[in-house]
Write a protein that binds this DNA or RNA. Structure first.
Lengths: 235, 235
DNA sequence: TAGGCGAAGATTGTATAAAGTTTCGCCTGT
DNA sequence: ACAGGCGAAACTTTATACAATCTTCGCCTA
């Protein structure tokens, strides 16, 4: 009856055109097809998606709010380049929030959710076997988002989406070796703890998972931003 | 030398016109001059601030992202009406994040910061003596933002700004009695703990402060959204 | 030849106009 | 008299045009 009486505020990601642009650009950034610092021209993107600059601008502003795009006045939008300090902040925030999210996820557990989690693990494993690094990075982030959705806390979910987006960028920038999507086993362990309703274990595994990811990174502050250039060219 | 070679991304809140609109509307909402559910017409606001709808729209989108404005497709922007469930989520998130923020604030403590905190307490006390409820609500929120700034964690600061904005709306919607800005003494206690570098006490006081605020609220779920109407008219 | 000035080109910021949707009053038919 | 539907007005959404700003490259001068 009152079927869709409330299109409501935040349909997760409506299929409107702004969302399509936003998701397209996001995917390109997180899958490392667009490198940090890349200029995101409004005309350029607009032409790709067949949209006017008005819509592109809206999408870019949303991405800026999410922290994966920087908008410099009168200069345009660029793929964000998180600093090591940013990276530490992001992971500290994740270590604070995600254990609590898992707690709530366990409270909200249901067979349907477990199925989704299990299915996700399968996808992750397949992508890893396939050696598809891009898909691995994306799926790894989506696992955490899935748990947050499960928790039913929209505030935490919103925060986490932001943190995940930034994390993906950070991992791609600062990972030490070509870390082969190290987290799949961890994810499986977390799901197992959720299934057992073992909050203690779930929290602990989530925490160590995040710590381990951060430990894989090389987070050393450059003396100044410009130094990055010398660093790159000096090699 | 390289004085301001990079105006950088997020000048806290630039003095551009969009920011002025955003801040003006925010203040109006948080000071209860605009009630939840109020329609925020683009023309109307644009005329007030002497700006075109383009700028107004940008500001409203930012406010929607902050959670104090709802944008309904093809219908416009409205002052948000947080549900009791939203309220509980917001305060849970605050109870999770703010104790940690105080920790960091203590690490970053300095005489200059203590001065600012002390000065803020004075302002709060004056507003309360004056019986200026609007200013009290605003200053109460700004205290928490100040601590977050002090912590130096930009991620936490961003999250907290969002939570504070929503909280102010929630408090104005659901407070039981005309709570006379109950928190001033609490704030003084928190500052005292910060001054003593007593993290344990600071965390504990922040937590009990937040709990007490939430306890002052009347958070009862209506069976459905529509029920609110019946509730109001049934009286 | 090196350095700086200046104009042209490109890109973003802002405003305005065209297009589509919703809402609400009014009118007609029963 | 009332229910239902038609239509106009108001508003949002999208596109386009204009203005302001920055960047780049050529040219001139020391």
């Amino acid at each position: 009856m009152a079927a869709k009486s409330r299109p409501k505020s935040d349909a997760p990601d409506a299929s409107d055109r702004v969302s399509r642009i936003r998701e397209g650009v996001t995917a390109a950034i997180l899958e490392h097809r667009l490198l940090p610092g890349t200029k995101l021209g409004e005309d350029e993107i607009g032409e790709i998606y067949g949209a006017s600059r008005t819509l592109v601008r809206t999408a870019l502003q949303q991405l800026a709010h999410e922290g994966i795009v920087n908008i410099e006045k009168n200069r345009g939008a660029f793929v964000a380049r998180p600093t090591p300090a940013d990276a530490r902040e992001v992971f500290e925030a994740r270590r604070l929030i995600e254990p609590t999210i898992v707690d709530h996820a366990i409270d909200a557990m249901s067979p349907a959710w477990l199925d989704r989690l299990q299915q996700h693990l399968t996808e992750e494993r397949e992508a890893e076997l396939r050696g598809d690094a891009r898909a691995s990075v994306r799926l790894s982030g989506e696992f955490h988002k899935l748990v947050a959705e499960m928790s039913g806390h929209s505030i935490y979910l919103g925060f986490l989406k932001e943190l995940i987006a930034r994390s993906s960028l950070i991992i791609l920038l600062y990972r030490r070796h070509d870390t082969p999507a190290c987290g799949t086993d961890h994810h499986a362990g977390i799901v197992a703890a959720i299934r057992k309703r073992d909050k203690q274990a779930a929290r602990a595994q989530m925490l160590s998972h995040l710590t381990e990811i951060e430990d894989e990174l090389f987070l050393k502050d450059p003396a100044a931003d410009e130094l990055r250039l010398a660093d790159v060219l000096g090699v």
